[in-house]
Design a protein around this nucleic acid. Structure first.
Lengths: 182, 182
DNA sequence: CCAACCATATGACAAATAGTCATATGATTG
DNA sequence: CAATCATATGACTATTTGTCATATGGTTGG
């Protein structure tokens, strides 16, 4: 067995599994849907990921000339790529969730902070969370109309549960701060 | 203002704020408490972080000879370091939480998976979560006895809420899989 | 007793990820 | 008609992660 690729690679491969030939740009757009539970930020290196997948023989590519727009390179998954993806999906145990929870990191050191400032941070955290909830609700509602998007909908619902819990706990803390308990 | 350091640096600084001179090794042990909500693991580079903090003048260090054990280097936070830490804690807005949720990434592509295998993955996910809950409960219970650990306890309770939500959702999915709904 | 392992202690190095910037085309908008 | 946006790709750097190497000395099991 060849050495397993990072999850990032399989995520890209996953997009190519469904909606056939895609450009790096299209993959990038699709990947934004992973934003809330995987792959926080920006990814110019979807392009390098695609080149790596090509080097492994998991995708083939073809340059397509366009007018009115810059040329693009279309990537298509191969037999080997499909197999590798399914093996990853079905056989590979999921790594533990990794978080970088900047709010909790600050709270952890809360004794060194001014309570009033923590309150401001918490309020911002709550409103960011509400914004996220609104975005995710749109995805979930859209997914509910499309049977092919069933699992996207499930993931969206899971994410909503996550943010709802976060917001509830933050509000509770805010109340305790206001009551002078902390 | 100098360019802000990564959160990692402030986390290390935070440990030095409380329990005065510490070795890299001690910082590393302390940092394990961040495991469930920040900073998966991984820290040979606590040592490089400490060297960087020293380069910024936020810590000073002193070599201490020991017998019975290898020599160590003790790091102490400076005035400038304390200030930088407080500014970060009180004034810097918390970045959005970043997650790498490998289970959700797999579920996202669930339509390409065999339901039975997803069930196995979910069961593993649940038992890992229960294990985490047990570990965190120990931290929380310990923190409840120590007034100085108040915020550590709050963070532990928040983490418990997180894992409880995760487990509940995973169980619900498992039930739907068993019922053949998915 | 002594090999294996554990705790203390630090660091080099490579791989992966994140983040910023550059480049280019052409449509839309103020 | 300048500014901005959408399409499209990639270089380059900084940061983070992960693995391995090194060294000292105590503990433990066979």
């Amino acid at each position: 067995m060849t050495k397993p690729l990072p999850n990032t690679a399989y995520a890209v491969l996953g997009f190519l599994t469904s909606r056939e030939p895609m450009s790096g740009y299209e993959v990038r757009k699709s990947a934004e849907n992973l934003h809330y539970f995987y792959w926080s930020p920006a990814q110019s290196q979807i392009y390098s990921e695609l080149r790596r997948l090509a080097a492994h023989g998991y995708v083939t590519s073809e340059l397509v000339r366009q007018d009115g727009k810059p040329d693009k390179r279309l990537y298509q998954i191969t037999e080997a790529g499909t197999t590798a993806f399914r093996v990853w999906l079905n056989e590979t145990p999921a790594e533990p969730t990794m978080m970088k929870h900047a709010m909790l990191l600050r709270l952890f050191f809360g004794q060194s902070a001014e309570p009033a400032r923590l309150g401001v941070l918490l309020e911002q955290f709550i409103s960011d969370g509400e914004e996220a909830l609104a975005q995710i609700a749109i995805v979930r509602e859209y997914a509910e109309l499309d049977p092919d998007a069933r699992w996207q909908g499930i993931v969206a619902a899971w994410s909503e549960a996550h943010f709802t819990t976060e917001i509830a706990f933050a509000r509770e803390l805010l109340r305790r701060l206001a009551d002078g308990e902390l």
